[in-house]
Design a protein around this nucleic acid. Structure first.
Lengths: 140, 140
DNA sequence: GCATAATAATTGAGTACGCAAGTATATAGT
DNA sequence: ACTATATACTTGCGTACTCAATTATTATGC
């Protein structure tokens, strides 16, 4: 077997880990009526409470296509978790922000999500988790 | 903003990173006619050259459902990159292994993939990459 | 100022999955 | 041995995405 570079194993392990974590987390989120992608949207919007985000910024942050964002936001808007408003400075953009109901649902889902994260990363000590979070943060 | 635990940011960053890396990597792989998921299958099979794997082991490793594996392997088998054989000890299993053509295609795709990994992880120093690889390996 | 090009979003069509149900084989209980 | 249960897949159907094309608006070159 040819020895693999660290960057190679990082990318592969990251992909495998994401697939496995996604399965477990969507189980935790389904009682709240949202998928993992939708949770990440709410998380992103909750992290920018002051300003509303253009859909394309959301797409870049999530690593999705613009059309994917359009299709994902439609049901969220329909059930009133997010709100959309025209940007008066640029009529092409429709700015998205969390509604009050969206903040509530996110607040309800977050603790269970955080618990699941804790469980899933139990094999790592607290200091290892801290370092891993730092390193991942640099790449993202 | 409520402060997030390290495990929380790890899981979120991991999901976001996987989505972004996936987009860039599939661009590198498309000249070879395979998707990222398919590359990961070849990678997994190439890592176990002696023994053929039951499909369900592949599904667990990749974090996919059994049906997803069935559907993904069908075209790979059709173009001859993987081969399937009955397990004489258990007639339920169909064991999968790389064909010669599969090894060749994987060998052709791997260098470009590794280069892309190097580029994508450029923000991290070599020692940081080594530590990140170690930590991810423990979680996976 | 006006044609051209770039940007934000949506829509149509196709693909890649997951879940639930079905089939075939193996294992366990008695 | 024989039923009952569990396992390894496969298939039908629905969903979530992507890509390419379209529309609406804004920026740029002359």
């Amino acid at each position: 077997m040819t020895p693999k570079s660290h960057s190679y194993t990082i990318v592969v392990d990251n992909a495998l880990l994401a697939a496995r974590l996604g399965k477990k987390l969507s189980g935790k989120l389904s009682p709240h009526g949202i998928s993992l992608s939708e949770y990440l949207v709410l998380q992103c919007l909750a992290a920018t409470p002051d300003a509303a985000l253009p859909r394309i910024a959301l797409a870049e942050h999530l690593g999705m296509s613009a059309s994917g964002v359009t299709r994902m936001l439609a049901p969220l808007q329909k059930i009133g978790l997010v709100e959309s408003e025209r940007n008066p400075r640029d009529a092409r953009q429709s700015l998205v922000c969390l509604s009050a109901a969206g903040k509530r649902v996110f607040g309800e889902a977050q603790p269970g999500f955080a618990d699941a994260c804790e469980d899933l990363l139990a094999p790592l000590s607290a200091s290892q988790q801290e370092r891993l979070a730092q390193l991942l943060g640099k790449v993202v």
